[in-house]
Computed example of a mutant assay.
Amino acid sequence: MNIEELRTYCLTKTGTEEDMPFGPDTLVFKVGGKIFLLTGLDRQPLSFNVKCDPERAIELRERHPHSVLPGYHMNKKHWNTVILNGELGKKQVEEMIDHSYTLVFNSLPQKIKEGL
């Protein structure tokens, strides 16, 4: 998955907006104004941060120690950094993005969810 495929996949999620609030080198995807994925545009290999259930985060880090790390510059209990170094398949990466989106979407107030 490259940056364009990542961007395209994120934008398929209902209510997703992209933004660059941290400067021109960091692309952020939000739902309901809350971040569910962010990526540095200058990183090689491509990597991104996604929200994750704490128990699942630990499990993924143990299963993929070279590709899933505690979230860089994030709350390490709730965020993972995913490195696209070829160890993870496209389906696994998409599942991590879906999980993050779902966690953030489900945390939104009902009124915001209904507006999306």
Rank of each mutant, 00 (worst) to 15 (best):
S67R: 00
G89I: 04
T26V: 15
E18W: 14
K30S: 09
M74K: 07
P70R: 06
K90M: 08
D53C: 14
P45D: 04
K51H: 15
N75F: 13
T14F: 06
H66C: 13
T14D: 04
K91C: 07
F36N: 05
G32V: 06
R63A: 13
R43V: 00
Q92M: 13
T81K: 03
E18P: 13
Y9E: 07
V93Q: 06
V68G: 00
L46P: 00
I35M: 14
K90C: 09
D42W: 11
K90I: 10
Y72T: 04
E55N: 15
P54C: 14
H78W: 11
P21R: 10
R61D: 03
H78N: 11
V31R: 01
T39G: 07
G40C: 06
P21I: 14
M96H: 06
E95T: 11
K34Q: 11
F48M: 03
T26E: 09
L46Q: 01
P65K: 07
T12G: 07
F22Y: 15
R56V: 15
T39D: 03
V28L: 07
H66T: 15
H66Q: 15
P65A: 08
T39S: 12
E17W: 10
D25Q: 14
E94Y: 15
I83Y: 01
H64V: 11
L38K: 00
P70V: 05
K51R: 15
P65D: 09
L27P: 05
P45K: 01
K77F: 11
D19G: 10
T14I: 09
F48Y: 04
K30Y: 09
C52T: 14
P70I: 05
K30P: 04
I35H: 05
G71W: 12
H78D: 09
E59W: 12
K13Q: 08
V93I: 15
M96N: 02
E87L: 05
Y72V: 01
V68Y: 05
G15V: 05
E18D: 13
T26H: 08
D19H: 13
E62G: 12
P24C: 08
I58C: 09
F36W: 06
P45C: 05
L38G: 00
E87P: 04
Y9F: 14
S47Y: 07
E55A: 15
D42Y: 11
G23N: 11
L11V: 09
Q44L: 02
L11Y: 09
I83G: 00
Y9T: 04
